[in-house]
Amino acid sequence: MIDYGNLMHRAMRGLIQDVLRDVEANGLPGDHHFFITFDTLHPDVEIASWLMERYPGEMTVVMQHWYENLHVTDEGFTVTLNFGEAPEPLYIPYDAIKTFVDPSVEFGLRFESPEEDDSPDPDDDTAELDSEADEPQQRDAEVVSLDKFRK
């Protein structure tokens, strides 16, 4: 049998890699920014222990105005984001990504495992951190709900 689901996921992860490689080389163009939700329990994810304690299953980060040290590999990417005046390096393998959204152009990818269903969980209290600071001073990370960007 042809495993179309696995092939599609591999192609979608390749698209994310291509987009991030372009951002690594040229920066974020225009109003583009990314909401990236990932599985913090994935064995290859590397985040600070305090972030792991705060987000023990899933975390969403926003790459927009302030990020640095973006390095893209074939397996994943590293990036440093600011969390309330505390720059933290993250390593996120592509296989850990659950959603990749660019709300500036209403583009999004969602990776589902066979045990997940399509209905949103109204009790889901997953927080998303917005690590952005446009000016030289750095703003604290904001907690935002991804629901405000869904249609």
Rank of each mutant, 00 (worst) to 15 (best):
H71K: 12
M52P: 03
G108A: 07
L41S: 13
T73C: 05
L90N: 04
S145G: 08
M63E: 10
L41C: 12
R139E: 14
G14V: 05
F100Q: 01
G57Q: 12
F149Y: 15
T40R: 07
E46Y: 08
L129T: 03
I36C: 05
M8H: 15
V23Y: 05
A86R: 14
E116C: 04
V61A: 03
H32W: 08
D3A: 12
D134T: 06
G5I: 04
V105T: 11
E68V: 07
F35L: 11
P56C: 05
V143R: 15
A127F: 06
E53C: 05
Q138K: 15
M59S: 09
M63H: 08
E106W: 09
D121Y: 04
I97L: 03
P89H: 01
L90P: 02
E112C: 15
F35C: 04
Y4L: 14
H71D: 13
R10F: 03
D102S: 08
D118K: 09
D18M: 14
T37Q: 11
P43Y: 11
D22C: 07
E75P: 01
V79A: 04
M12S: 14
F83M: 09
H33P: 03
K98D: 02
M52S: 15
Q64W: 12
F34I: 01
V23N: 04
H42A: 05
G108R: 02
V143M: 09
V144W: 00
M63Q: 05
G27N: 09
D134W: 09
F38C: 02
W50I: 14
E135C: 10
Q137F: 08
E53R: 13
S131M: 07
D121V: 13
H32Q: 14
P114W: 10
L28K: 03
L20G: 00
P87T: 09
P29A: 06
D102A: 03
F35R: 02
V144K: 11
D117R: 08
E88R: 03
L20C: 05
M12F: 12
R13I: 00
D118S: 14
H32A: 09
S145V: 00
A48R: 10
D147Y: 12
E112T: 13
I2W: 09
D125N: 15
E85I: 02
T80W: 04
L7N: 14
F77E: 01
D22H: 11
G27E: 02
W50H: 13
I47S: 07
S49P: 04
Y67G: 04
R13S: 10
I2S: 08
L129P: 00
A11N: 14
N82W: 01
V144Y: 08
E116G: 07
F100I: 02
I47E: 05
G5E: 10
I36W: 04
D95V: 07
F100R: 00
L41Q: 14
G57C: 09
V105I: 13
T78I: 06
I16R: 00
A25C: 11
D121H: 07
L146C: 03
I36G: 03
E46V: 11
K148H: 12
